[in-house]
Design a protein around this nucleic acid. Structure first.
Lengths: 168, 168
DNA sequence: TATTGTTATACTCTATAACTATA
DNA sequence: TATAGTTATAGAGTATAACAATA
């Protein structure tokens, strides 16, 4: 860019672009692998990963939604696809009749286990191969801080969500 | 994750997830701003940015496609939308009758200039605010290396592109 | 009245393949 | 024959709003 950009230094701008490109390429590669290896979207993979990581293999829809960028309806859609393939099941929560509990099935665990090695391998090849140990530590440090900051920062300032009163 | 993951250390896995989350959140925030402030998709913003950055404000479709993840038809689609809004124009290349030259209009430059400050501000607030100078340098170093590596690595190994013979 | 979740709907974006035209 | 680009088409994904049910 030829101009000062009124707010970002050249190095900042470069880092920003690099981050976007790396994120985009990684996402693309990983997405394609998951699609090919297991006919899974990245979101579906994340859902399975979250569930498998859970001690009992189950989570409420709301908890599943936490940390995912998507809308509720989007989650319902993706969960619906996984249910159709019998990789997960849906059942009403005993505690709260409004809630829905999502549980990984054996088939779900199997598919996840089958897909994970290639996934991890892709990530290692693309992301970590060109790194030195110092890089990893540095990256973890920075990204951890940034992530915390982003989580604490309201992503959309002008979107009060209809039907929900936020104090302020 | 509770397991060794056969290929990635815990720290690597953490860094990978952090990268994906940060990239995703940043993309989301920036996307929303561009949409609100200028009714632009991120791809459209990138197209404008590329053109504005060019000395004469113009580029061939093929050059524009370089570095973008998308298919040709996807680019045609996005370019078509910008043309409809008269933010860019399309004209045949004098050098090569097959090529199409895309040029930013005054309106395109204006919109880009109007949208850029907020864009940059978002990036600064979300990405750089929680950083120290050491962080920036570290991030630039790592991401630069990773980006080079990714560019050199064929993203999709099993996709020879129909109608094109690659040596090897 | 607030929360949880689903559904209907519309829309955006992307990719594949077929096609035209020029080199 | 290879390259540049468009178009037709189809599919995936997302979001909004309306809805139902429980707390």
């Amino acid at each position: 860019m030829g101009e000062p950009e009124a707010g970002l230094s050249g190095e900042q701008l470069g880092a920003y672009f690099a981050l976007m490109e790396v994120g985009s390429l990684l996402q693309y590669a990983v997405d394609e692998h998951l699609r090919t290896a297991g006919d899974l979207s990245y979101v579906q993979f994340q859902i399975l990963a979250r569930l498998v990581d859970e001690p009992e293999g189950r989570l409420r829809m709301t908890d599943l939604a936490d940390g995912m960028v998507h809308s509720r309806s989007g989650l319902t859609y993706q969960v619906g696809l996984l249910v159709k393939r019998e990789l997960i099941t849906r059942s009403p929560s005993p505690d709260d009749e409004r809630s829905v509990i999502v549980t990984v099935t054996g088939a779900g665990r199997e598919l996840f286990a089958r897909v994970l090695p290639g996934h991890v391998d892709d990530v290692r090849r693309l992301l970590f191969e060109p790194m030195r140990d110092g890089d990893l530590a540095a990256l973890s440090g920075v990204l951890g801080r940034v992530r915390e900051h982003m989580r604490a920062t309201p992503p959309r300032s002008a979107k009060p969500r209809p039907g929900r009163n936020r104090a302020g």
